[in-house]
Simulated scan of single mutants.
Amino acid sequence: MLTASPQLIPNQRVAEASCSHPRSALPVGRPLQRSIKFSHQRSLVLRSAAETYSREVTAPRLIQHKNEAYWFYAGLSQVYDHIVNPGHWTEDMREEALVPAKLDDPNLKVVDVGGGTGFTTLGIVKTIAPENVTLIDQSPHQLAKAKAKPALKGVTILEGDAEDLPFPTDSFDRYVSAGSIEYWPEPQRGIKEAYRVIKEGGTACVIGPVHPTFWLSRFFADVWMLFPKEEEYIEWFTKAGFTDVKITRIGPKWYRGVRRHGLIMGCSVTGVKPKAGESPLAMGPKAEVSNKMNSNPLSFLMRLLLGTAAGFYYFLVPVYMYLKNLVWPKGLPM
Rank of each mutant, 00 (worst) to 15 (best):
G331M: 14
R47F: 15
L281C: 09
V210L: 05
E96L: 14
N132G: 04
G201V: 06
L76P: 02
V258R: 15
A194N: 04
E16H: 14
P60W: 07
P22T: 01
M293F: 07
A178R: 12
D104G: 08
K66Y: 02
T3S: 10
A4G: 07
L323E: 03
D222M: 05
I234A: 07
A148K: 09
I198D: 01
Y70N: 02
G115M: 07
P22C: 00
A50C: 11
P252A: 06
I124S: 06
P140I: 00
M302L: 09
L306F: 11
R303S: 11
P274E: 09
P130M: 00
G154S: 03
T270R: 08
E163T: 11
D81L: 11
A309R: 05
S171C: 02
K246P: 01
A204C: 09
K330N: 10
Q12M: 03
R303W: 15
G241C: 05
M334Q: 14
R260S: 06
D81N: 14
L46G: 07
A151I: 03
V272W: 09
Y80T: 07
A59Q: 13
L305E: 04
V133S: 02
V155C: 04
G115Y: 14
G118V: 09
P280F: 15
W254P: 15
P10L: 00
H261N: 02
V155F: 04
F38W: 13
V319N: 07
I36V: 13
S290G: 01
E96W: 11
M225Y: 09
L32K: 12
N67D: 05
T134N: 08
E131M: 03
T243W: 04
E68Q: 12
F119Y: 11
I198H: 08
M93V: 08
I250D: 01
P187T: 01
I9L: 10
L46W: 07
V176S: 04
K37V: 08
G160W: 06
S39F: 06
V110G: 06
V110R: 07
P333K: 12
P209H: 02
K153W: 02
Y314K: 03
M283W: 11
T203E: 00
A97N: 12
D104W: 12
L263Q: 13
T238P: 13
I264F: 13
L305W: 15
E235P: 00
H141Y: 12
Y175R: 02
G75K: 08
A74R: 14
W184S: 03
L62E: 14
R256D: 01
T134F: 13
A97G: 04
D170I: 03
R256I: 02
A194W: 13
R30C: 04
A287S: 12
F214P: 01
K275Q: 14
Q188N: 08
S177V: 03
N294E: 10
N294Y: 09
G271R: 03
T270D: 04
